[in-house]
Design a protein around this nucleic acid. Structure first.
Lengths: 163, 163
DNA sequence: CAGTATCCTACGTGATACTG
DNA sequence: CAGTATCACGTAGGATACTG
């Protein structure tokens, strides 16, 4: 039958995944973050089929994550919107986890540095309102005002119930 | 033909996606974070087919993201390992983005609070080594020691080349 | 309860050829 | 160059029945 669509699930995670959770999508976005702009560049770099790339880009433009414009070169260029740029923490968190837990033999493949001083940025971390570093089990999830406002509901107890 | 596998790509992002990028996987992990432990609980909550859930759980256990043990109840229980718990920043970043850019009508669906003082945690953000908040265009990517050490290579210019 | 085993379908993907 | 169109195919996913 038809695959279930995450889109209807009233859950911010599912919502996010419905946009960037498709295969290839996050890799495309990464490439645009990396400075690739043109269809051909992306296609060549990723080794993705053109029709797939075309579909994904169309979707991302529709979602206002990318903008398509004619660049100075006269070719079409894809650029990240503010909404797209806001995905950066997700990407960085993924890269960081990958570097830690599925490392290359020789160490980190990429290092992100502050443009100003060229010093590495902090690892993505969870912090309390006053800046303390929090461990996974230090936080709880509470239902917000938007919880279960539409039909579908997601149960919500505690975020990391440490037994 | 066969779908391309991200696994071989020497990129920390692709590595991460090869583990948690499959459909359902991140939602399963979220549920375990939320306190669900048992096969049936997960299956019921997600509305996922049992065979799919079974496959995903097996994979996650093999990847040492989940541990399967007999709980006190006498039933099998799945719990996050340290490697699994380390996925939390990714999840939080996704939830945060979803709340911001694909909001529910009534506001945030979930609020994460510090267990100690019940105050909301900070939004996931990128910070410099000395704690300054960085914008997407404030950072650059540099190749690390593990870059392109294996065959496959990913081009690497600048992370968010602001034109 | 916690899965495993089948069957079936449709979707995602890749390859290739074609268009402006 | 930047796609669109078409086709073929594997497999992910759903449903259901079955097992320990």
């Amino acid at each position: 039958m038809k695959h279930k669509d995450f889109d209807h699930i009233n859950c911010s995670l599912a919502q996010t995944l419905s946009v960037i959770g498709e295969h290839w999508t996050l890799l495309i976005i990464r490439d645009v973050f990396m400075g690739l702009r043109r269809f051909g560049e992306l296609q060549k770099d990723l080794g993705i089929a053109k029709n797939i790339l075309s579909e994904r880009l169309k979707r991302l433009v529709a979602e206002q994550i990318l903008e398509k414009e004619k660049g100075e070169s006269g070719f079409y260029e894809y650029r990240l919107t503010e909404k797209g740029l806001a995905l950066q923490p997700i990407l960085l968190a993924c890269v960081h986890w990958g570097d830690n837990y599925r490392p290359s033999a020789n160490g980190a493949r990429v290092v992100f540095v502050d443009r100003k001083d060229y010093l590495p940025i902090q690892a993505m971390s969870v912090r309390s309102h006053d800046g303390r570093l929090l461990n996974p089990k230090d936080i709880r999830a509470k239902r917000g005002p938007g919880f279960s406002s539409d039909n579908s509901d997601t149960p919500l107890q505690s975020w990391t119930t440490a037994d």
